[in-house]
């Protein structure tokens, strides 16, 4: 019997194709409360599609996605948006920050969208920036930040609403090893402190080693699971 926590997010028999190209062929995955899971695999194995389906970014063609026991794949787009704003935090390799907003406004944005007054939102955003060591850069725009700083700001933005799950798609893919290490340390540390689960897509074994569990995908299906040493 598994000693894993009860699944917070679960995918069952996911099928997804882009045109005639199959991306997922019956993929299954569970992520428990507070668990950090790395999904690895070769390019084109369906890693990002799996994350997109779990986060409600893409609707699967077949199978089910549940979050906290409720079907995510059946939710309307507005409800999915709300879920990503409140319960989920999403991080990509790059591009998730609004280029025209300062770092602090980028982090404050999800709070403002939830109705928090701007001043309060900025105060909380600054706390998160401080936590990730980029408070001094709070008035800079994404284009003026280094890659590592930008990803830490993105991480602050993903975590500022206190999500229960963080979906991170190659969060260190565009960074050098030192910056990548800083981002991963910040991500894992913050997730552990807040009890958030993390689904991490990566092709980098060093990054996968931060996870509690690694799941491998091949040709759109899970081929094995193991706990990294």
């Amino acid at each position: 019997m598994s000693n894993r926590p009860a699944p917070l997010v679960a995918a069952r028999d996911l099928v997804k194709s882009y045109g005639r190209t199959p991306a997922l062929r019956g993929a299954c995955l569970e992520v428990g409360e507070g668990e950090i899971v790395a999904v690895t695999g070769a390019s084109g194995s369906g890693k990002s599609t799996l994350l997109h389906c779990l986060a409600g970014i893409v609707r699967p063609d077949g199978g089910t996605v549940t979050y906290d026991g409720k079907r995510v794949d059946l939710l309307p787009e507005d409800r999915l948006s709300e879920l990503r704003r409140t319960d989920f935090g999403v991080m990509f390799q790059f591009g998730q920050l609004i280029p025209e907003l300062t770092a602090v406004d980028n982090v404050a944005l999800p709070l403002m969208l939830a109705g928090t007054a701007r001043g309060t939102a900025q105060e909380r955003a600054e706390e998160w920036l401080e936590r990730f060591g980029v408070r001094e850069q709070k008035d800079l725009r994404p284009g003026e930040l280094s890659g590592g700083q930008e990803q830490r700001v993105a991480l602050a933005r993903a975590l500022v609403t206190g999500p229960r799950v963080v979906f991170a798609d190659e969060p260190t893919g565009a960074l050098d090893s030192l910056a990548g290490e800083q981002v991963m340390t910040a991500l894992v540390g913050a997730a552990r402190a807040s009890g958030a689960a993390v689904l991490l897509i990566t092709h980098d074994a060093t990054v996968a080693a931060y996870a509690d569990r690694e799941v491998r995908l091949r040709d759109g299906a899970v081929v094995g699971a193991e706990v990294p040493a």
Binding site: I57, S81, R84, R85, V90, F92, G95, Q96, I98, L113
Partner: peptide, 15 residues
């Protein structure tokens, strides 16, 4: 791409 990433991160399309 940036706009799609915003929506993926939960920014409503109406905004």
């Amino acid at each position: 791409r940036g706009l799609a990433a915003q929506v993926a991160a939960g920014v409503p399309r109406q905004v």
